[in-house]
């Protein structure tokens, strides 16, 4: 299997390795490449299948789902389930709650994370290591379920929006990404602004923020998707149906179908297409945004890792 490339003596080897035309592959490697494409195609198929199945079920009629005939394409195509789910007022109330919680929580999170990250990114800040440590430690040790629950009760946050939007306001992971972005910020700009008489506030709001739009957009997306998808705080701290986000609405559908009481498989089958429709409607905004937001997410994660 030793490669004896004719281009070994070529002076431009760095470019050669990545280009497909000049390197003469061994037969084994060609076989590998073909197999690789097949394997990755299968992986893509398996990854996408559950979504396709979900959409197919959402448009299928109950009878075909119950008899296990729906996989890739809808059987007994209809949109009545969609109309039924969408005519449920509680669904829309909960959907609206999700939007409100996501917007408010993201706003709070961005305000806290940005200011915190900026302060701890300044190397001249005295006590910098202490403040960084204060945040990083919470990544590895936290109070646990019950003390947090008691705290929220004590604060009177139960059955209010604050139980959802406040306790998760700082994600240390996002904080560290922003911090490393601000650390790479050209200090000359800020120096010049300071010399021109801008205070720290001026520098931050008029120089740093406008020049950080890309990273801010990434952070907003990170937080917004996380809050949109979250369900457990709402499940834990909210008792009234009209306060639920749509994820809890969906969770209750699933629990009704498969929980302890639903073990007789009746419930599961009746709810199957309703579940599918609710799931489709819940993920729809994310799927629609996904092609546009994906690159921000990737660049955000990269940003967090480049320092190493």
């Amino acid at each position: 299997m030793v490669t004896t490339d004719p281009i070994q003596a070529s002076p431009d080897l760095a470019a050669v390795r990545r280009s497909s035309t000049t390197v003469k592959d061994t037969r084994g490697y060609k076989a590998f490449s073909a197999a690789n494409i097949v394997v990755l195609t299968i992986i893509c198929g398996l990854t996408l299948y559950p979504f396709v199945n979900l959409v197919a079920k959402a448009f299928s009629s109950e009878g075909f789902i119950v008899s296990g005939q729906v996989n890739l394409i809808p059987r007994g195509f209809n949109t009545t389930t969609f109309l039924a789910v969408m005519s449920d007022d509680m669904f829309w109330i909960n959907y609206k709650n999700t939007v409100v919680y996501t917007v408010v929580a993201t706003a709070i999170a961005i305000a806290l994370t940005t200011t915190f990250a900026y302060a701890i990114s300044r190397t001249y800040l005295k006590g910098r290591q202490f403040f960084i440590g204060l945040a990083v430690f919470t990544m590895f040790f936290n109070g646990g379920l019950i003390p947090n629950y008691l705290l929220i009760n004590e604060l009177g946050f139960k059955n209010t929006i604050w139980a959802i939007v406040v306790p998760n306001a700082i994600s240390v992971f996002n904080l560290l990404i922003m911090k490393s972005f601000f650390e790479n910020f050209p200090t000359e700009l800020e120096e010049a602004a300071a010399i021109d008489g801008l205070s720290t506030y001026g520098v931050f709001f008029r120089i740093v923020i406008p020049l950080s739009k890309a990273v801010l957009a990434t952070m907003i997306l990170f937080y917004a998707v996380a809050f949109w998808n979250s369900w457990f705080s709402a499940f834990l701290y909210l008792d009234r149906a009209e306060l639920y986000p749509v994820t809890v609405y969906l969770r209750n559908l699933l629990a009704a179908a498969t929980g302890t009481e639903g073990l007789g498989s009746d419930g599961a089958q009746i709810a199957a297409n309703v579940q599918s429709v609710t799931m489709v409607l819940t993920v729809l905004p994310i799927i629609c945004l996904y092609p546009f937001i994906q690159k921000y997410f990737v660049s955000g994660v990269m940003l967090g890792s480049v320092k190493g």
Binding site: T138, N142, P147, L151
Partner: peptide
């Protein structure tokens, strides 16, 4: 929200 629950 992080250290009080730890004490909790």
């Amino acid at each position: 929200f992080r250290y009080v629950p730890m004490l909790g």
